[in-house]
Simulated scan of single mutants.
Amino acid sequence: MRTRCQVVSNASALRRLPFFSCAMLGLALLAAHGPHAVAEGAFALTSASFHTGGTVQAAQVFNQGDCKGANRSPQLSWHDAPPGTRSFAITMFDQDAPGRGWWHWSVAGIPATVGSLPENASSSGFLSKLGAVEARNDFDTDGYGGPCPPPGKPHRYIITVYALSSADLRLAQGRPALMFDHEISTATLGSARLVVNYGR
């Protein structure tokens, strides 16, 4: 004789189900309504320095030649990283620069326990204290190099935080940003981004 169980529906009607189906339904209900059930949010990136679609302020603009900013890397916060995240990486890329675009910043090796960076984390030494490494940007300097487009139409800058499956991409300080981008892509579990604008 096949073992059966009864499940009470929301309408209080009794429905007879095979044991396996009943067990699976019970597990689903436990997952949905149990005391440890939590709704997972989407991996997201925010900043106190600017907001998506907004304009980059002078504090984050490059500080050489005819660009007169403070060249401070932006404050960034992120939450709800995917399960299995072992470290984070961040990049800032100008997709409107001529040719292949322009790398402004790439950093890897941010511990999985970190959920934010203060403003100026690049040049203040904050990142190096975490054990993170920064690439050589397209200004040919290590670390953050802020926006400094030629006069004309504003450029769009994509700031992305990546959740990675590895805690060690074997990247060294000062290697090209393009190399960082390649290694980051091999270990990405998920990403979140902001797009901001700046023109002169």
Rank of each mutant, 00 (worst) to 15 (best):
T91W: 04
E183C: 02
V161P: 02
A97D: 09
S124K: 10
T3L: 15
S49K: 08
P83Y: 06
F20L: 13
D168W: 10
I159F: 14
L164I: 11
S165E: 08
L117K: 05
A70L: 12
L14D: 01
N120I: 06
A121L: 00
E134W: 03
Q60I: 14
I159Q: 08
L17A: 00
G41C: 03
M92A: 15
L127A: 06
L45G: 08
C5E: 14
G145N: 07
P111Y: 10
F43A: 02
S21G: 03
L76C: 08
F50L: 12
A39S: 12
V61P: 00
A44D: 01
Q173D: 14
P18T: 04
F20R: 15
M92V: 15
L117H: 04
A32V: 01
A23V: 13
T91V: 03
T85H: 10
V61I: 15
S165R: 11
S122I: 04
S87H: 02
G34F: 08
Y162G: 07
G65L: 05
K129S: 09
C5A: 15
S47T: 08
L127Y: 03
L25C: 04
Y157I: 02
I110W: 08
N137P: 09
Q57I: 13
S49G: 07
L30N: 06
C22F: 11
I159K: 00
I184C: 02
F93H: 03
R15I: 12
I110F: 07
G99P: 13
W78N: 09
S47W: 11
K129E: 07
D80Y: 06
W78F: 08
A70W: 02
A39C: 01
T3G: 06
L130Q: 05
A58M: 10
G101W: 00
A167C: 02
G125L: 08
S49V: 05
H79T: 15
A81C: 11
F20C: 12
C148A: 13
V196I: 12
S12H: 14
G41E: 08
R72A: 09
M92K: 03
W78G: 07
N120K: 12
W103D: 12
Q173P: 01
A81L: 04
L171C: 00
G145M: 05
T3N: 14
T91G: 00
A11E: 15
G99F: 12
S49W: 04
L127M: 09
R2N: 14
R2W: 10
C148R: 08
L30M: 11
C67R: 01
P74W: 10
G109A: 09
V161W: 01
T160R: 08
L130W: 01
G131D: 07
I184T: 03
G54I: 06
P154L: 06
P98Y: 12
G26E: 11
A13W: 09
Y162Q: 06
L14T: 11
A32K: 04
S47V: 09
G115E: 07
L194W: 07
H79I: 04
E183A: 13
V38Q: 14
T188Y: 00
L164H: 06
T188I: 02
P118S: 10
V56L: 10
P18W: 04
G84K: 11
V8P: 00
L171V: 01
M1W: 09
F62C: 02
I90G: 12
L189T: 02
R193F: 12
H33Y: 14
W78S: 06
F93Y: 15
A89C: 04
P98L: 09
L194N: 06
L127Q: 00
A132S: 14
S166L: 05
N120Q: 13
L130K: 02
F43S: 03
V38E: 13
